[in-house]
């Protein structure tokens, strides 16, 4: 800061607080609504005072929305995507950076072509394949290159595999690990080879410990990404026991002819949005690192 004038300082803090209020207001309003009884929340306008029904509403939301099962599903999905993506891309990047082989460049290019194309663009064919038989390409390729008639079938509807697997196909993490591996000093690998370490030992004992902060950063980003998915879980799950919390929330929103139980719907919304917010707040340092790294 170059100069200090009381007026500028005042304006700075005024606008900052205004910003925090703008950002926080929708959630504050939601929290208030979630503490009110039904007759208060349906008043026009709704009283801007905390009520005493918070726990009652939370309990009602938990039971009515079957939130226990749904939040668990969301957790499994988010964790699966996080672990899957990081494992797959760590191994892939290791292969691309530390080995020289015939199809290395082709593998590299074919993976990175997918960098900017999210699942929403190819949603219909992906859904058709996942819902009928996602081993179709395997069958096709085996039949093409050999005489074996392979007819494997596996559909992914209403399963955790179905929620997780298609969303692992993304190149962002691989790209990030590749960039990081390229900055690791050459001497480390030479020294490890001199000491007779196998590639996997090098990966386990040196590369992974070095990538710790990158992994932590990606854990935050991918967990939030997985937990908040909407279009894919909406399509791939039909069984109420398999839907995720973000999808299930919609059933609690009062429609035109329902009793306007917004207090319960909003209490549910608060519960559902809490886990990723906690992850971001408690892992703030890694979150910021992940955000800035992942988009380079």
């Amino acid at each position: 800061m170059v100069e200090r004038t009381p007026i500028l300082d005042f304006l700075t803090y005024f606008f900052l607080i205004l910003g925090v209020v703008i950002v926080g207001f929708p959630v504050l309003y939601t929290i208030i609504a979630a503490t009110l009884p039904l007759e208060d929340v349906s008043k026009v306008p709704m009283p801007f005072m905390f009520g005493d029904q918070f726990l009652v509403n939370i309990k009602a939301a938990w039971e009515k929305g079957n939130l226990g099962t749904q939040i668990l599903n969301s957790f499994i999905m988010a964790t699966g995507i996080t672990i899957g993506k990081i494992t797959v891309s760590l191994l892939g990047a290791f292969s691309i950076v530390y080995f020289d082989y015939k199809f290395r460049v082709i593998a590299f290019i074919s993976v990175f072509c997918t960098l900017m194309l999210p699942v929403e663009v190819r949603i219909l064919p992906t859904y058709e394949m996942a819902a009928v038989n996602f081993l179709e390409p395997v069958n096709y390729l085996v039949n093409l290159f050999s005489n074996v008639e392979l007819e494997l079938e596996w559909n992914l509807l209403d399963s955790y595999t179905g929620l997780i697997l298609p969303l692992i196909a993304s190149a962002t993490c691989t790209f990030l690990f590749r960039q990081f591996f390229l900055t690791v000093p050459e001497e480390l690998c030479e020294a490890a080879k001199m000491d007779g370490a196998s590639p996997m030992t090098f990966l386990r004992k040196i590369l992974i410990p070095l990538s710790k902060t990158n992994i932590a950063a990606l854990v935050v980003i991918e967990f939030v990404y997985g937990y908040n998915q909407y279009l894919w879980p909406l399509l791939i799950t039909t069984n109420p026991k398999m839907i995720t919390a973000v999808i299930g929330l919609q059933n609690l929103i009062p429609q035109a002819d329902d009793i306007p139980e917004w207090n319960i719907a909003l209490a549910a919304a608060l519960l559902v949005m809490l886990p990723p917010i906690l992850v971001v707040l408690f892992m703030q340092r890694w979150f910021i690192k992940g955000l800035v790294d992942a988009e380079k």
Binding site: V23, N228, A269, I288
Partner: peptide, 11 residues
């Protein structure tokens, strides 16, 4: 200021 990033678009 950073936590709204973690809120799902649908929410």
């Amino acid at each position: 200021l950073i936590w709204p990033y973690a809120v799902a678009p649908a929410i």
